[in-house]
């Protein structure tokens, strides 16, 4: 799969990362290199091998359903840029 500069701009936008034109070229080269590596790996026959979703072969530990957290709103909101009546304030969003 070959990437072009438009792909890079789109991916950057989706991730909300600002990428200048110079950086875009550099990122294109790096990402293309990674995709090349993946292409090489895809040449390996993996028939019958269960796909791995985590690097360690262990399963998820579960937590008992108990409320352990107390209200720390004052503490958390002390570092928020803007709050009012207990709400975090952000620039207006209307769908």
């Amino acid at each position: 799969m070959a990437l072009n500069l438009d792909d890079i701009k789109r991916i950057a936008h989706l991730a909300r990362i600002e990428v200048s034109d110079n950086e875009a070229q550099e990122t294109l080269n790096k990402l293309s290199g990674i995709l090349g590596l993946i292409e090489q790996m895809q040449a390996v026959d993996t028939t019958g091998i269960t796909p791995m979703s985590h690097s360690q072969d262990v399963t998820q530990r579960l937590r008992e359903d108990v409320v352990t957290q107390t209200n720390q709103r004052e503490l958390f909101q002390s570092i928020a840029p803007a709050t009012q009546d207990g709400l975090y304030l952000v620039p207006k969003v209307i769908e």
Partner: peptide, 29 residues
């Protein structure tokens, strides 16, 4: 119908004061 959240021990009770049940996992610190 659980007492606590999917991935943290914050309460799920409906209708609480805003952000009083929003722990560090809920607010994604």
């Amino acid at each position: 119908q659980t007492k606590s959240k999917q991935f943290s021990g914050a309460s799920t009770t409906y209708g609480a004061e805003p952000n009083t049940q929003a722990c560090e996992v809920s607010i994604a610190l």
